Amino acid sequence: MVSKRGRLDQFIAGTLQIPKKAVRELLINNKVRVDGQFAKSLDLQIDEFTHIECNGVVLRHYQKRYYMLNKPDGVVSATIDDKHPTALGLMTGINTEMLHIAGRLDLHSTGLLLLTNDAKWSEALMAPDHKVDKKYLVTLANPLDQAYVEAFANGMYFEYENITTLPAQLMLLSSHQARVVLREGKYHQIKRMFGRFRNPVVALHRESVGDIVLDHTLLAGEFRALTKAEVDSVFQH
């Protein structure tokens, strides 16, 4: 989702279906408030969260919203899907208008899914140069050993994209389970990295993105709003 920036006069003219000359008259006569202040400039830049009033009537007022969802297996990270239940379909009891997913999970992957209507926030969170740590709990079909740790730390070359993955941290938890920390998110990256060892991933569960950790009180399919500290953490790296 892209932030919807534009000029104030274009927005008012389009919303009220009046010429820009009439918009100028509204501003001259202190009829337009932007974020509580009388607007003076026609070319004032606004976005989807700018509060705009004209003659006391609210023309635009969206609040920024941020949620975490404990995504279950079999739910697709999408707004609409013909075959599977969607993440947004689980967000019952709230207005899901404008919400989008910041960092998708595969159909059978579970765990932390972040949703917001704030494009700048999600772009900062997922931008490749931001390199936010993403932590996953992975269960494998076959036993693990130290060779996996070294291979993940060295990075792996993917011939199809002609890229080498960034060094990734792998911690062995048991014979068939490991915790993986990535700082990027290539297509099916974790499954493909374990695939080098011909070791299928049985379960993939995202535990955290940056400083935002999945709330363990949330059952699969449940969600809650992010705290201010969790929201602000995205811009502290």
Rank of each mutant, 00 (worst) to 15 (best):
M1P: 08
M1R: 11
K4C: 06
R5A: 10
G6K: 05
R7E: 01
L8G: 00
D9S: 02
G14R: 04
L16P: 00
L16I: 01
Q17N: 15
Q17Y: 11
I18K: 01
P19F: 07
P19L: 05
A22F: 06
R24G: 05
L26D: 03
I28V: 14
I28P: 02
K31D: 05
R33F: 12
V34S: 02
Q37E: 15
F38V: 12
K40C: 12
Q45G: 10
Q45A: 13
I46G: 00
F49K: 04
H51Y: 15
H61W: 10
Y62D: 11
Q63E: 15
Y66G: 01
Y66P: 01
L69M: 08
P72I: 12
V75E: 04
V76Q: 01
S77F: 00
T79G: 09
K83I: 07
H84C: 04
P85D: 07
L88V: 13
I94C: 05
M98C: 09
H100G: 05
L105Y: 00
L107G: 01
L107N: 00
H108M: 13
T110K: 07
G111Q: 04
L112V: 09
L112R: 04
L114C: 02
S122L: 03
E123H: 14
A124Q: 12
M126A: 06
A127H: 15
L137V: 05
T139E: 13
T139A: 08
A141C: 11
A141P: 07
D145Y: 01
V149A: 04
E150L: 14
A151V: 13
A151W: 11
N154E: 14
G155R: 06
G155I: 09
M156S: 12
F158E: 14
E159K: 15
E159P: 04
E161Y: 10
E161P: 11
I163A: 08
I163C: 10
T164F: 10
P167E: 01
P167K: 06
L172A: 08
L172H: 03
L173M: 07
S174Q: 06
H176A: 07
Q177L: 01
R179I: 13
E184W: 06
E184H: 04
G185Q: 02
Y187W: 15
H188K: 13
H188A: 11
I190S: 04
F194C: 10
G195S: 10
N199E: 11
P200C: 06
V201Q: 03
R206F: 12
S208K: 02
V209F: 02
G210D: 05
G210N: 05
V213A: 10
V213F: 10
L218H: 10
L218A: 12
L219E: 14
G221L: 09
E222L: 09
E222W: 07
E222Y: 07
F223L: 06
F223N: 06
R224F: 05
A225W: 00
A225V: 08
A229S: 14
D232N: 11
S233V: 09
F235I: 04
F235A: 07
Q236F: 11
Q236A: 13
H237D: 13
H237C: 12
